[in-house]
Structure formats: C-alpha cells, structure tokens
Amino acid sequence: MTHVVCEPCDNCKYTDCVVVCPVECFYEADTMLYINPEECIDCEACVPECPVEAIFHEDNVPDEWQSYTDINAEKTAAGDLPSLTEKKEPLGE
C-alpha cells in the first residue's frame, strides 16, 4: 500500500511532508512532489504534515484525483526526478 500526492500540491509544493518520511520516498518535480509507491511504507507520517491536504492513502484518493495514483508511480519510476529529504521554501512564497 502507498500514499499518493494529488492535485492540491500542484503549484504549491510545501515540503513539510518530506522531513518526516522515514524512507525518503518523495521526489521533486518543477511544480509538485510525488511519492514512489515502491518505496512508501504506508506509515502515514506525511499526511498530517501537508498543509494543503494533498496526500491520501491510495484507497482514499478522491474520485476526481484517481489519476494521481498512476501519475505518482510513473513520475517516480522514470528515475529522472531528484529525491527530496529536506524542507524547502514552497512555491509562491
């Protein structure tokens, strides 16, 4: 099982979640973050840290954002996104 970063993260990209991740499964693209489903251990530590409520357990992703389950997997499987482990300034601030 895994967690999924969804649309509210786009053009926001708070990184509070990456600091608490014990397995460093977050990856950074230009406008949002993604979780690698192969690395996520389903600990849920990231969920309460997201100030825009963009992270959901894969079984609880809202219908309108279901595509983000595959998007997270595809984006992180490509291997061209850097792993993110430290907090950064969010976009727009």
Rank of each mutant, 00 (worst) to 15 (best):
V4H: 03
C6H: 03
P8S: 05
C9P: 03
C9I: 12
C12Y: 05
K13R: 15
T15R: 13
D16F: 09
C17V: 11
C17N: 02
C17I: 10
V18T: 06
V18E: 11
V19S: 15
V20Q: 06
V20R: 02
C21E: 07
C25M: 12
F26G: 05
E28G: 00
D30K: 13
T31V: 11
T31R: 14
M32H: 14
N36T: 09
N36R: 13
P37Y: 04
E38D: 13
E38Q: 14
E39P: 00
C40V: 13
C40P: 12
I41T: 07
D42M: 09
C43K: 13
E44G: 11
E44L: 14
C50N: 06
C50R: 08
C50D: 02
F56C: 04
F56R: 01
E58L: 10
D59C: 00
N60R: 12
E64M: 05
E64I: 03
E64S: 10
W65S: 03
W65F: 13
Q66V: 06
Y68K: 07
T69E: 07
D70S: 05
D70G: 03
D70H: 04
N72S: 01
N72E: 03
A73Q: 06
E74D: 08
E74N: 02
A77Q: 07
G79Y: 10
L81Q: 07
L81N: 02
P82S: 11
S83L: 06
L84T: 01
L84H: 02
T85R: 06
T85M: 04
E86V: 04
E86I: 13
K88F: 05
E89P: 01
E89Q: 06
E93C: 04
